[in-house]
Simulated assay, not measured.
Amino acid sequence: MNETDTADESIATGIRKVLYGASAATFFGLGMVGIVLPGIPTTPFLLLMCYFLIRVSPRLHAKALAWPVVGKPLRDWQEKQGVHHRVKRLAYSMVVLLVGYTLIFGDLHLSIKAIIFVLGLVGIIVVFRLPTIHREHGCG
């Protein structure tokens, strides 16, 4: 049995295909929300999207891995089971800057600010817990 046969056997059919497709779409949407809202981790949602997407459409999964912005981290996760330290630094910076800006300059009720602060902390913890890929020797 070759690799193509194995991949074909893992393609969902029937109701499972509908559920997996809906899950992939949901996690894609949450990942996109995470790009623009502070405190919502993007990477875990996109990883979950890939998990379901490859079982529904390997073609769409391949396109997701080729996306200019998020494709590289998704490929790194798939191939190396981690994310580069610079991706983590960028995630930390974005959460701190966006949450900090919202907390300082936002005209929000204190309870809403507390929720945003907690979500920011959760986002930082999630990113911190992701395995880190360190620079390989001989690579720029």
Rank of each mutant, 00 (worst) to 15 (best):
80 K>P: 03
91 A>M: 02
23 S>V: 03
69 V>L: 08
116 I>M: 03
34 G>L: 01
123 G>M: 02
74 L>Q: 06
45 F>A: 12
42 T>R: 04
42 T>M: 09
13 T>H: 12
100 G>A: 08
121 L>G: 15
35 I>W: 07
22 A>Q: 05
85 H>G: 15
37 L>G: 11
138 G>L: 04
96 V>P: 15
104 I>W: 10
137 H>R: 04
72 K>D: 14
82 G>S: 05
13 T>I: 13
139 C>Q: 12
78 Q>R: 13
41 P>S: 15
9 E>I: 01
77 W>H: 09
104 I>F: 09
46 L>E: 09
4 T>W: 00
49 M>G: 03
117 F>Y: 15
116 I>A: 06
19 L>K: 11
128 F>L: 03
48 L>H: 03
124 I>Y: 15
95 V>S: 15
45 F>K: 01
61 H>M: 11
83 V>Q: 04
73 P>C: 03
38 P>N: 05
119 L>I: 06
82 G>H: 09
117 F>N: 14
105 F>T: 14
61 H>P: 03
14 G>W: 07
52 F>K: 00
51 Y>T: 05
16 R>F: 00
11 I>T: 07
124 I>V: 12
123 G>C: 06
13 T>P: 01
109 H>K: 10
59 R>W: 00
72 K>H: 04
67 W>V: 11
12 A>T: 11
125 I>N: 03
78 Q>Y: 14
99 V>R: 00
66 A>C: 08
91 A>G: 08
65 L>Y: 00
76 D>C: 02
3 E>H: 11
57 S>Y: 01
71 G>N: 10
35 I>N: 09
98 L>A: 10
97 L>K: 06
56 V>S: 06
37 L>P: 13
3 E>L: 09
56 V>K: 12
11 I>R: 05
124 I>G: 10
94 M>C: 10
126 V>N: 02
71 G>E: 08
60 L>Q: 06
27 F>K: 00
83 V>G: 01
128 F>H: 12
43 T>K: 01
35 I>Q: 09
133 I>W: 00
91 A>V: 02
48 L>G: 13
129 R>S: 08
41 P>M: 12
98 L>M: 11
95 V>C: 15
79 E>L: 02
115 I>L: 04
137 H>I: 02
127 V>M: 04
22 A>R: 14
135 R>F: 00
107 D>E: 10
68 P>I: 02
51 Y>G: 07
118 V>P: 10
60 L>C: 07
102 T>F: 05
93 S>K: 06
107 D>Q: 08
131 P>H: 10
3 E>T: 13
80 K>I: 03
7 A>I: 08
89 R>D: 09
116 I>F: 04
74 L>S: 05
28 F>G: 15
102 T>M: 07
127 V>T: 13
85 H>E: 15
122 V>M: 04
132 T>R: 05
127 V>I: 04
106 G>H: 05
117 F>E: 14
113 K>I: 10
38 P>Y: 00
28 F>K: 07
41 P>I: 12
41 P>W: 01
101 Y>H: 10
111 S>N: 14
11 I>C: 06
12 A>E: 11
35 I>R: 06
2 N>W: 01
67 W>E: 13
11 I>W: 01
27 F>R: 00
102 T>L: 11
61 H>L: 09
12 A>I: 12
76 D>G: 02
45 F>R: 01
124 I>K: 08
91 A>Q: 03
